[in-house]
Amino acid sequence: MMEALTVRGPEKNMAASEETSAAIPRSGSASRLLATYRSEIALAVAILLIMGVVSFWSPQVFSYGNIANVAQSAAPLVIMALGVLLVIITSGIDLSVGSTFSLSGMVAGLAMSAGAAWPLACVAGLAVGIAVGAINGLLVTLLGLAPFVVTLITYAVGASLAFVITDGHSIALLDPTFYLLNGGQLIPGVTNYVMFCLLGTIAIELGLRKLVMGRWVYAVGSNDKASRLLGIPVNGIRAGVYVIAGLLAAFSSMLSLSYISNSEATSGANMMLQAIAACVIGGASLFGGTGSAVGAALGAIMITVIQNGVNLIGINSFWQGSVTGLVILVAVLIDRLAKVRA
């Protein structure tokens, strides 16, 4: 069979646009829900499978203590991934969220050590997140710069400012009630970090599905030009998602600070890549137009479960990144295969 073809235009879904037909019968709301969340359910099963494999070496993986531990370490990543997801759906990318995490943590820490009450300090931290997001959004929309370049700039500047404002020193947070943000129970019986994750995931998921603006986030990522011609406020949506991503990155930092009680300039260094990875594992495409909040949250949990498993089994933690990379590869391949068959 021949392979090469000498003269050929970009093959824009020629077969797809003309003759294929993906039959996904969807009737009844329950079965439709199942069909809609098929890949998310598969992801949840995969997480349980990973835990099952780990349990051969270390049965305590399913213990209450370990699960609480995993949930606690996953919480900040879940919150951050939700914001990054919105940006990715619009076919953008936010490389600055890790720096925003660090910088907002340092600002909140400084405010607390200057005597501010923790809620006030947190407001200052969140304001940093909004500011960074607004700068990203304005540069992307008004100047039309590539999101990768814009957020590469804010990533670099943010990371450096996090050192500058305390001269590189870490800040111990001594406010005795600050732990309540993370460890308190606004809803009796549900610790706050779990509550924030659930609430955030549900809010973003419903927002994306049920708000017209949520549909516009997908539309912008799906077809920028068509969206403009349809009267969708493309620039507003694009700027908005960066602001939300900045805000959620800062909130993620506050939650983490409340648990660790110590603010460091490098605290967010690894988180940006993990947050993007969480979205990709959760089914978002970096080309934009697809992705779900439930998927991104599960992706964040999966990454944390893998780290936890590597620790429990006793593999040198230097291998964590390799294992995570492998899992991303597998997740993307499965997604690819599912789409080819559909």
């Binding site: 824009k12 997908y218 077809n223 030009k225 068509a226 011609l229 934009g288």
Partner: peptide, 13 residues
């Protein structure tokens, strides 16, 4: 493809 269809969104959208 360029100016009309939102390719990643379902027909209803």
């Amino acid at each position: 493809a360029e100016k009309g269809v939102l390719a990643t969104l379902p027909i209803v959208d």
